[in-house]
Amino acid sequence: MASVAGSTRRARRRRPKNPDGRMPVMDHLRELRRRILTILVLVAAGAVLGWFLYPQTLELLRHPYCNVPAKFRYTPSGEGCVLIYHGVLDGFTTRLKVSVISGAVFTGPLWLYQIWAFITPGLRRNERKYTIVFIIASTVLFAAGMALAYTVLAKGLRFVLEQAGNGTQAQLTVSDYISFVTLMLVVFGAAFEVPLIVVMANFAGALPARLLKRSQRIGIFLIFLFAAVATPSTDPFTMCAMAIPMVLLFEAAVVIAIVHDRRKARRKAAEREQAKLDDTVASEIDAIPQPLEPPTSAWADTT
């Protein structure tokens, strides 16, 4: 019995993949579990590298705070900028948090590939060639969102800290400040991925271009609403800095979806025409034969 069970398990493991990407629900769940475990391993490996690069990362994240005028931030020695912490484990947990986030950033292309590989079985074979394009586009968009967040962070942070007025100073803890900065970077990076998700949904057939065209105004309103809620600083400058590029990217995604749907419609029309001319497909004939026309007088004289 054990040998039979072992051979059954081996046969199940060796089962060939369906070229159309179709599989039972349990196989989908097992595939999802495998992809999630792979992503966790990749992020953990990147976190090890992020742990050793923590001093450089902390200096980079601390730079926007150091650009705030000295009268609004804590300067115990009269110069420089200092982030404090109170709890015994606050320093360790902060380093661990930054390391994990850095690991996710470092291994971004790898775990993005895992997400795409889970989705691609539902696409056509000629549409799976966009894997490299998706990985490059998602990496570039996430990096662009983080770069924009880092650029506007200094102005947004200064705007927030100056609201307390003269005669006050911000004595920020390293845990709170790192959480604020990383949340800003991640939110901007993730927001720039939304247009790419729209394009992916369109390529998968879940979001047709005609629906996107009808809901453009609603989409723009939701983008500004999302930017107002998602930006940690809640100031109008940061909100517009996120919303305006997202609107432009969303419009670009709509254009890509329109072009893709038109090409898809032309391809299906060509396939239907080809099917009509295929020798293996029966031609349409009349159920009742039509009577033959009588011969003309000229043809009758010659005969």
Rank of each mutant, 00 (worst) to 15 (best):
S297R: 15
I258G: 07
I136R: 06
L157I: 00
N67H: 12
V160M: 13
P245I: 01
N166P: 07
L211P: 06
P55K: 01
T75I: 12
G103V: 01
R125I: 14
Y65E: 09
V181P: 01
D278E: 04
E284V: 08
H260F: 08
K129Q: 13
N18P: 07
V105I: 12
I218W: 07
R15E: 11
R214Y: 04
P121R: 00
T139L: 06
P19D: 03
S7Q: 15
F118N: 04
G78M: 06
I39W: 01
G167W: 03
R217E: 14
V105M: 06
T303Y: 12
D235S: 04
P24A: 05
G205V: 03
M23C: 09
P16R: 12
I285G: 09
L37R: 12
A282N: 05
L196P: 02
W111Q: 03
R34H: 13
D278M: 01
L32S: 09
K155M: 06
W299R: 13
R217I: 14
I39L: 02
W51G: 06
L29V: 02
D286A: 13
L183E: 15
D27H: 07
M239P: 07
C66S: 04
I256D: 01
R210G: 11
C81G: 02
P121D: 03
F159A: 05
